[in-house]
Amino acid sequence: MSYMGEVRRTAFSSFGAAASGLLAGGFVTLVRIAKALHRRTVLNRLGDFDDRMLKDIGLTRADLRDAASGPIWQDPTSVLVVRAVERRAGRRQAVRDSLDAMRPQAEPNAATRETAGCH
């Protein structure tokens, strides 16, 4: 057997794998924290919007306060997205309900009454 085909493990090979895993995990964590901090600056800019502009995108001042109240490393946009989607779904349901209330109830027509009476 040649020495080229052998794989030798040193005493530090598992340490190297663990260290590289920690570095990769640390890098991912740093990237997440940097994104969360950047999104908090965007959240601060949203605070400069007036109430009408916030309403246009489906948010309120209370939504901004709730999103900002989380820990600094937590991404605040998840709170804002959930609130905006819930509010939009509520408006859609209200429109559907009002349209359903405006529709007249269907009365059986004469043909339906005649065939129903024949049985």
Rank of each mutant, 00 (worst) to 15 (best):
Y3H: 15
Y3F: 15
E6F: 15
R8D: 12
R9Y: 14
R9V: 13
A11K: 07
A11H: 04
F12I: 15
S13E: 10
G16N: 13
A17M: 09
A19Y: 08
S20R: 15
G21M: 13
L22N: 09
A24T: 09
G25C: 04
F27P: 05
F27K: 01
F27S: 11
V28L: 09
V28M: 06
T29A: 06
T29M: 11
R32Q: 11
R32N: 10
I33C: 05
I33K: 03
A34G: 01
L37K: 11
L37P: 03
H38L: 07
R40A: 03
T41G: 14
T41S: 13
V42E: 05
V42T: 06
V42M: 12
L43E: 06
L43M: 00
N44K: 05
N44F: 10
D48N: 09
F49T: 03
D50E: 01
R52F: 05
R52M: 01
L54A: 01
K55Q: 09
D56A: 04
I57L: 01
T60S: 06
R61C: 03
R61Q: 08
A62M: 06
A62W: 07
L64E: 05
A67W: 00
G70T: 13
G70I: 10
W73V: 08
Q74T: 13
Q74G: 01
D75A: 06
P76C: 06
P76G: 03
V81E: 06
A84G: 03
E86P: 04
R87K: 03
R88K: 02
R92W: 10
R92S: 14
Q93F: 03
Q93T: 01
Q93E: 11
A94T: 11
A94N: 12
R96E: 15
D97V: 01
S98Y: 12
D100G: 12
D100N: 14
A101K: 11
M102P: 03
R103H: 07
P104N: 00
A106H: 15
E107W: 06
A110P: 09
A111M: 00
R113Q: 11
T115F: 12
G117N: 10
G117S: 14
C118A: 15
C118D: 15
H119F: 14
